[in-house]
Design a protein around this nucleic acid. Structure first.
Length: 466
RNA sequence: GGCGCAUUCGUCUAGGGGUCCAGGACGCCGCCCUCUCACGGCGGUAACACGGGUUCGAAUCCCGUAUGCGCUACCA
């Protein structure tokens, strides 16, 4: 049987990095096994879900470079892929559960339930449903029905409700039926709850492996019970641990950026993001930490996914992003940098400073010296020597002419080493720090020819002289 | 409270009974390279939560304790 996995985001905002990692693991697993990767939007929470959020989540996934085979915008054999549009699919299942006695109508109001819960808790009992409506006689039920009393559909936990699963990441996990109370399948407004729709959809979409966040682990108990009641095969489960903030609590907004779009805005490359997120929980068999998606697709397996939660480490992300930027060519980087900063001489500029940058947003600052020049205090005669040479020979435009330029300057000023290069750097950039002069001076010359905002080396030296 | 999951350097992790006085990566510190800043190279710092078992032998298996997290909703 071929692998079919799904990522099931609820559209309540931008894609969270935790969700992104879950999506990546699903995607890697599907690609590794030549399977199908499905996006299914879980929007049954009417109060919080929006179509705008769905669009954003899909955009975020696309930015990361994940492609799905079936989804809300990618028709497949199980269209639609939006739960709010699948209500008729759930009706039949609900009917069957009701008819087979696995579920019953519950007429209790939310207020009543709340009161019962509070009382149970006060008396030290588990806050489970008290079975009032389970015990209703057929006469009582038809009476309620005839009076148009609203009802929800509730699942009855059977006597043999103990469940054991063999989780692909955590091994055997067992629950006793006592830990569960009868739970809602269909709300009184007719919409299914998550635990119900997820089972109906996963079954109908022929999902073979459910790879999702750990917070769903205990829900699996309920879901397996529904599979059993319907006589359906149970898929394999793999529960991925949570991503934590520096204080080891679940990563949230107060820890800083949590949505992938924010990382895009902050100048991270999607390749680095995917690499980092993959590394957060999974490790390559040969221990490498920098890898392409081709590599991780070729080597991904769930038994190398760590079951312990992981702290999101911004420093390592920075390092990784820097590694990607350093190893890319200026031509490759060019279109990536443009949204953040642009200039006619950008490609040469990127080449000059890329090793000092860790995020795309930093190119602007790293290249600021090209357009902004503040003369520094430099020995006047030294500056005049530079100016004289530039006037006589023109500014260096490549490594060869730069070297010749430096040789002449050495002769003219008698300075060498630091005593030569420091005043030169200062005269041309106004700063004692910056990229290597051999490529910087030619850039300054080239940039001044194409960009009116840029002063040429000669103009700079002249300003130093005053 | 109940149930479940987790616990190796500050962080991400390797490790699935002896080859581990625990390996790699980020960070940090030092050295080298070097006109500076970076990059890069080299070296260093630093961990098996605790307590009992099982075993000739445990980071690795079992049981407790502690801590963290999750679920316990007509949220997903």
């Amino acid at each position: 049987m071929s692998v079919r996995v799904r990522f099931a985001p609820s559209p309540t905002g931008h894609l969270h990095v935790g969700g992104a990692r879950t999506a990546i693991f699903n995607w890697l697993f599907a690609r590794r096994h030549g399977g199908t990767f499905i996006i299914r939007v879980e929007d049954t929470d009417q109060a919080r879900s929006t179509r705008e959020s769905e669009t954003m989540v899909l955009e975020d996934l696309r930015w990361l470079g994940l492609q799905w085979d079936e989804g809300p915008d990618e028709p497949g054999p199980h269209t639609p892929y939006r739960q709010s549009e699948r209500t008729d699919h759930y009706g039949a299942v609900a009917q069957q559960l009701l008819a087979s006695g696995h579920a019953y109508r519950c007429f209790c109001s939310e207020e009543m339930l709340e009161a019962k819960r509070k009382q149970a808790e006060a008396e030290g009992r588990p806050p489970h449903y008290d079975l009032t409506c389970f015990r209703l006689s057929p006469q009582e039920i038809s009476a309620k029905l005839n009076s148009w009393a609203p009802f929800a559909l509730r699942f009855h936990v059977p006597d043999d409700g103990d469940v054991t699963i063999d989780d692909l990441i955590r091994g055997e996990v067992t629950w006793k039926k006592e830990s569960l109370g009868d739970f809602i399948l269909v709300r009184s407004d007719g919409l299914p709850t998550y635990n119900f729709s997820v089972v109906a959809d996963d079954h109908e979409m022929e999902i073979t492996h459910v790879i999702r966040a750990e917070e769903h682990l205990t829900n699996t108990h309920r879901q397996v019970l529904i599979y059993r009641a319907m006589g359906w095969d149970v898929p394999q489960f793999a529960h991925v641990s949570l991503i934590l903030g520096p204080d080891r609590s679940k990563l949230s907004k107060r820890h800083g950026a949590t949505s992938v779009s924010q990382y895009a805005d902050d100048g991270f490359l999607p390749e680095a993001m995917v690499n980092y997120l993959t590394l957060l929980g999974w490790s390559a068999p040969d221990g490498r930490e920098l890898f392409t998606t081709e590599y991780s697709i070729g080597h991904f397996s769930l038994d190398r996914v760590n079951s312990a939660p992981a702290v999101f480490d911004h420093q390592k992300l920075d390092w990784l992003n820097g590694q990607y930027i350093h190893s890319m060519t200026a031509a490759e980087l060019l279109p990536r940098v443009r949204p953040f900063f642009d200039a006619p001489w950008l490609e040469e500029g990127i080449e000059l400073v890329k090793t000092s940058v860790t995020r795309l947003t930093e190119f602007h600052e790293a290249l600021r010296f090209v357009r902004e020049f503040t003369p520094a205090e430099v020995d006047r005669s030294f500056c005049e020597a530079i100016a004289a040479d530039l006037r006589a020979n023109g500014a260096p435009v490549d490594e060869g002419s730069y070297k010749a330029f430096v040789e002449r300057l050495k002769t003219a000023t008698g300075a060498k080493g630091k005593a030569l290069f420091m005043p030169l750097r200062l005269a041309l950039t106004g700063s004692e720090h910056g990229p290597e002069l051999v490529r910087m001076i030619p850039l300054l010359q080239h940039a001044s020819e194409s960009d009116p905002m840029v002063l040429s080396p000669l103009q700079r030296v002249e300003r130093c002289i005053g």
